[in-house]
Amino acid sequence: MAQAQLLGPVDIRRLADELDIRPTKKLGQNFVHDPNTVRRIVAAAELGEKEHVVEVGPGLGSLTLGLLDVAECVTAVEIDPRLAGKLGETVAEFAPERRDALRILCADALTLRPEEVGEPTALVANLPYNVSVPVLLHFLAIFPSIRRVLVMVQAEVADRLSAAPGSRIYGVPSVKASFYGDVRRAGAIGKNVFWPAPNIDSGLVRIDCFDAHTAPWDLGETTRSRVFPLVDAAFAQRRKTLRAALSKHFGSGARAEAVLRAAGVEPTVRGEKLEVADFLRIADAAEVAE
Results as ranks from 00 to 15, higher is better:
Leu65Ala: 02
Gly61Val: 05
Leu105Gly: 09
Val70Thr: 09
Ile104Arg: 04
Arg98Asn: 09
Asp100Ala: 13
Gly66Leu: 00
Leu65Phe: 06
Leu68Met: 10
Asp108Arg: 06
Ala107Ile: 11
Thr90Met: 01
Pro81Asp: 05
Arg113Phe: 12
Pro96Leu: 12
Ala107Phe: 11
Ala107Thr: 11
Glu72Arg: 08
His52Thr: 06
Glu119Ile: 14
Ala109Met: 11
Arg98Trp: 12
Ala122His: 05
Val77Glu: 10
Val91Trp: 10
Pro58Val: 01
Pro96Arg: 14
Ile104Gln: 04
Glu72Gly: 05
Glu78Cys: 00
Thr75Asn: 01
Ala45Gly: 01
Gly48Ile: 03
Glu51Arg: 04
Val56Arg: 07
Leu102Glu: 10
Pro114Ser: 13
Leu102Ser: 05
Asp69Leu: 01
Glu72Val: 03
Val54Ala: 06
Leu102Asn: 07
Ala92Asn: 13
Phe94Leu: 01
Val74Phe: 06
Glu93Lys: 08
Lys86Asp: 13
Ala95Met: 05
Gly61Pro: 04
Cys73Gly: 13
Glu46Ser: 02
Thr111Gly: 10
Leu60Glu: 14
Glu97Met: 06
Arg113Val: 15
Gly57Cys: 05
Pro114Gln: 14
Cys73Asn: 15
Asp108Ser: 04
Leu110Ile: 11
Ala92Asp: 14
Glu116Ser: 13
Gly61Thr: 08
Asp100Phe: 07
Ile104Ser: 02
Thr75Pro: 03
Thr64Pro: 04
Leu87Arg: 04
Gly118His: 11
Glu72Phe: 02
Asp69Ile: 00
Gly48Pro: 03
Arg82Ser: 13
Asp100Val: 10
Glu97Asn: 06
Pro120Phe: 09
Ala107Met: 12
Ala84Ile: 15
Gly85Glu: 14
Gly48Val: 03
Leu105Gln: 11
Ala109Phe: 12
Leu67Ile: 00
